[in-house]
């Protein structure tokens, strides 16, 4: 994306954002609340029109998947039908789409739960169904808007670990927005820091030199992790303090 400016309620919330997500790389965008992180993802997938700037993905819409904070599964469809939904929208016959959905559910440790409605699944299981729904489309780029924020720590660690293994294996590019600095560093190859909104800007870029394949929990014990975390935390704190003083 190049020089992207996005408004929320008529006011620019994010200004002049430029960043690139390379093939198969995992990029995170961190920043305080109100810095336009979610709006940026919505602009990339076309749910929101930017005030100015461009987004170029070179991908068909079906090759871009998005995971929202809420799993947003259709409550009247079973887990299997929810996963098959995107496949049928893109022309796959229903029977084949349902079989494909079953395979993805099994891959995400949900074998045997295909007939359950979302209401009868736990938070972690619903999140896995939402993940299967997006991965089944074989996306080249995945956008994630704090998709695991609502999960408890243990479930979250397990889901994230599975996700990382899958995106590494399938070589999917990821753009994640999050408040969680540790999560951003443990998962990403690149992290961008946004200043406090309104009129937030990308102020820093961090190259994360942790090796792959990566375990999102154990990578936090890598010697490069702590210094990078300290730097990111100091920069973020300074941004928030400066904005508070200006106000």
């Amino acid at each position: 994306m190049h020089d992207l400016t996005i408004s929320y309620g008529g006011e620019p919330v994010l200004e002049g954002a430029s960043l690139a997500v390379g093939d198969g790389s995992f990029v995170s965008l961190v920043g305080p609340s109100g810095s336009g992180k979610s709006s940026l993802l919505r602009a990339v997938i076309g749910l929101q029109r930017p005030l100015s700037g461009t987004v170029e993905t070179g991908l068909a819409p079906s090759q871009i998947g998005i995971l929202f904070q809420d799993d947003a599964l259709l409550p009247w469809k079973t887990a299997r039908e929810n996963v098959a939904l995107g496949l049928t929208f893109n022309g796959m016959v229903r029977g084949k789409a349902l079989a494909e959905a079953d395979a993805w559910l099994a891959r995400l440790d949900l074998a045997g739960l295909g007939d359950r409605f979302p209401r009868r699944l736990s938070g972690g299981q619903r999140k896995r169904v939402a993940l299967a729904q997006v991965l089944a489309m074989r996306p080249k780029l995945m956008l994630m808007d704090e998709p695991f924020a609502s999960l408890d720590a243990i479930v979250r660690a397990r889901v994230v670990k599975d996700l990382v293994a899958l995106v590494e294996r399938e070589k999917i590019s990821v753009l994640l927005v999050t408040h969680d600095l540790e999560e951003a560093l443990s998962l990403s190859d690149d992290v961008y820091l946004l200043s406090q909104g309104p009129r937030a800007r990308i102020t820093e870029h961090y190259d994360v030199p942790l090796p792959r394949p990566r375990d999102p929990v154990l990578s936090r014990t890598h010697p490069a992790f702590a210094p990078l975390y300290e730097r990111l935390w100091a920069d973020l704190s300074r941004e928030v303090d400066q904005r508070a003083e200006a106000a």
Partner: peptide, 13 residues
Amino acid sequence: DRRLVERVVTLGG
């Protein structure tokens, strides 16, 4: 629920 509408749209519906 707008989230359901957006979910279907982003899946290509």
